[in-house]
Write a protein that binds this DNA or RNA. Structure first.
Ligand code: ZN
Ligand code: ZN
Ligand code: ZN
Ligand code: ZN
Lengths: 158, 158
DNA sequence: TTGAATTATGTTATTACATAACGGGAGTAG
DNA sequence: CTACTCCCGTTATGTAATAACATAATTCAA
């Protein structure tokens, strides 16, 4: 956590331990198998790094951490990120240029995020989109995807 | 309109004419005066370019168009954009890395946008934020700003 | 009216974010 | 085996945004 617009500590953590990560990776592999998609080594590695990070992580941080000895090439990571996003395993946070693991294991969620500007953590919340879909209806606009991102301060950082 | 994921024309236009732009610029100047802020030449020029463009426009397009004879320096435009955004005269569209003039002349609006992926236009809609604020409340999260952007197809591009 | 403080701009350089293009390798269906 | 598709590694480039510092304009109080 290298954020800090504040002085307090940011150890109010909910990071996955390595067992938790392994479990999530196994789930992801199963999901890909079921979908007829290939969970390749770079994709798996990218997902592992996203899961290991406690909050939204930047593409170039993934690039830096990709290999134990040195950085990956950008396309390697960006391609993996695109794939993982299509598979619903991660989300892109538009207002941060960052990526976060999907923590909504239920079906058909419309990802919305509470983004703490103090500690950098994100919370994914399930939201019904009635407001925006109603407006879209009124405008005869066909919605494909909705981005909802709220910035502020989390409970621990209040 | 250089968008086009489609073949139809995109002349379903609502661009401001030069009188309309002049009027909006005058409003903006009055607003700054009232707020004790300075509407300087680069800020006015930046706003003029945003208003003249029918839809979200990229920062570097503004940079290219800034001077009749040649491009501006990036900080000139980015600083102006920051100012205009703070004044509520424009909005940044996070999912496009672009900027659009604020078309909501009423008070206290929570900007949400319908973004056509076909013709590139945007519609600003007023939205009540009950859904996300309710979720934030449940998480004891203090919301500062909310980004809501829906992508899809507008009526004319269906 | 002068001069210090503040605010805004000009300028150079750099950092951060993302994709195009191409050649090659691994899986797969016939 | 062969053709096909998908994915990967690599080089290079394109695009978006800011750091840092010097200069200029404005404000305001002495
Ligand atoms: Zn926090
Ligand atoms: Zn904090
Ligand atoms: Zn359209
Ligand atoms: Zn169209």
């Amino acid at each position: 956590m290298t954020h800090a617009a504040c002085d307090h500590d940011h150890h109010h953590d909910h990071a996955l331990d390595s067992n938790g990560i392994e479990a999530r990776l196994a789930e992801a592999q199963a999901l890909c198998l079921a979908a007829g998609e290939r969970m390749t080594a770079p994709r798996l590695r990218t997902l592992e790094l996203v899961l290991a990070h406690n909050g939204p992580i930047k593409a170039y941080d993934l690039i830096d951490r990709f290999h134990p000895e040195g950085a990956a090439k950008p396309p390697t990571v960006y391609r993996s990120l695109s794939f993982l996003e299509q598979m619903g395993l991660i989300h892109r946070i538009e207002s941060l240029n960052a990526f976060v693991a999907c923590h909504d294991h239920t079906e058909s969620h419309s990802a919305a995020f509470l983004l703490c500007e103090c500690c950098g953590k994100s919370e994914e919340v399930a939201l019904n989109l009635s407001g925006i879909t109603q407006k879209a209806l009124e405008s005869d606009f066909k919605v494909e995807r909705v981005t909802i991102e709220a910035k502020g301060r989390c409970k621990a950082c209040r």
